[in-house]
Amino acid sequence: MKPVPEHRPSVRTFSFRDDGSIPNHHSLSVLLYPSAVSEPGRMEPLFASNGWGNTWTNGVFSYHHYHSNAHEALGVVRGSAKLQLGGEQGEIVEVQAGDVIVLPAGTGHKKLQASADFLVSGGYPGGMDYNIRTGKPGERPRVLEEIRLVPMPVSDPVFGREGPLLTLWDQTEGFK
């Protein structure tokens, strides 16, 4: 049985500039779908059914990191947490079971605190492999080129080909 998302959620968007350490994405916004999934324990199969593979279930690192070669969906399976998005000067968001965050390639993220039972599932469009970058000076300019080359997803990790990601990212005008 395919996991069922709730009705279309409200979508919160966040845009971050390159802070000199964490590049973030030059034109795509982070998407946060609060309470998007009614069966959060089935986050991995939901992502996979919508073409976001190479899934895993675990936690979020407690240091700033990003993926320069893939976009990432993070679905909260259980518990709650405070995450910092966008690097040291980024936004702090609170997430709980059923929430989904979609991070464009290059977007920094870090766990600040979490409940003891906090667990997330991750997935990548088309099952792409992902790297882990931490903002070290030697990573540039290579990561900037990698981020630029990451293709747009063909589906939303929660709502498939009818999802808000496709519209929101298509309308992104950038914030250079």
Rank of each mutant, 00 (worst) to 15 (best):
V11E: 12
L31Y: 02
D170V: 00
E173D: 10
L112S: 06
Y63A: 07
I101V: 14
L112M: 13
H25D: 13
K136F: 11
V150D: 00
S10M: 11
V60A: 01
L31H: 05
L31N: 06
T57R: 06
H71K: 04
H26P: 14
S10H: 10
W169H: 02
N54A: 15
G126V: 01
V154T: 12
S35P: 02
Y63I: 15
G106K: 13
I132N: 07
G41A: 12
R148K: 15
D18P: 03
V100G: 10
M43F: 04
V76R: 00
M128L: 15
G122W: 11
Y124N: 01
L166T: 06
R148A: 15
R17C: 08
G135R: 06
E6K: 14
T172V: 07
V150T: 03
E145Y: 06
E6R: 15
V76D: 01
H65W: 09
Y66D: 08
G108H: 09
S21T: 13
E72Y: 03
L28R: 12
T13S: 13
W169C: 11
S21P: 00
A70F: 05
E44W: 01
K2M: 09
V76H: 01
D18H: 07
Q113N: 12
E139P: 12
G138T: 04
H71G: 07
M152W: 01
K110W: 06
G108P: 11
G41Q: 14
K176E: 14
E145D: 09
V30K: 10
G138S: 08
